Computed example of a mutant assay.
Amino acid sequence: MAEDAPLDYRAIDDVIHGRVRLAVMAYLSGADTADFSQLRDKTGVTDGNLSVNLRKLEEAGYIRIDKAFVKRRPQTRCSLTDAGRKAWLAYLERMQAMLFGEGGDPAD
């Protein structure tokens, strides 16, 4: 990338780029699945805030939300979909390209 070429911030996935959604995607990329309380504790947000952000990720097709009852208590479990994993990797590649150039290699 030429030194004076502008960084193409428009290629950043706005669904993922929100702080809470970014944290959820990062956590789920390393954990196969996580329940609602794990995600709430890891992100440090309120139940309502987490619910809104999970819904946005689900609507985008990035996460799957499974609801069940365990010992009469509702349990919400989340996991990345294949599309979500692809979007996450593309997001990371775009951020690397913005930081280190189109090759995206910090060693360059």
Rank of each mutant, 00 (worst) to 15 (best):
A2H: 09
D4V: 02
Y9D: 04
R10M: 05
R10E: 15
A11T: 09
D13I: 07
D14E: 10
V15T: 15
V15A: 14
H17V: 05
R19E: 15
R19Q: 14
R19W: 08
V20N: 06
L22G: 12
A23V: 06
V24D: 05
V24W: 02
M25Q: 07
A26S: 13
A26W: 01
Y27F: 11
L28D: 07
S29L: 10
G30E: 10
G30F: 07
G30S: 08
T33Y: 09
A34T: 12
A34L: 11
D35W: 12
D35P: 06
D35G: 00
F36C: 03
F36P: 07
S37M: 12
Q38F: 06
Q38E: 14
Q38N: 05
L39S: 03
D41H: 09
K42F: 13
G44D: 04
G44C: 03
V45C: 11
T46C: 02
T46W: 03
D47N: 04
G48L: 07
G48D: 07
N49K: 09
L50E: 03
S51L: 07
S51T: 05
S51R: 10
S51W: 01
V52S: 07
N53D: 03
L54K: 01
K56C: 12
K56Y: 12
L57N: 02
L57C: 02
L57I: 01
E59P: 02
E59L: 14
Y62F: 12
R64I: 09
R64M: 06
I65P: 01
K67I: 01
A68Q: 11
F69I: 10
F69R: 13
K71Q: 11
R72G: 08
R73C: 00
P74C: 04
Q75R: 12
C78Y: 05
T81Y: 01
T81S: 13
D82F: 06
A83R: 15
G84C: 06
K86E: 15
K86T: 15
W88M: 13
Y91V: 03
R94W: 05
M95G: 08
A97P: 08
A97W: 02
M98V: 06
L99A: 11
L99D: 10
F100M: 02
F100D: 01
E102V: 09
G104N: 06
P106S: 07
P106W: 09
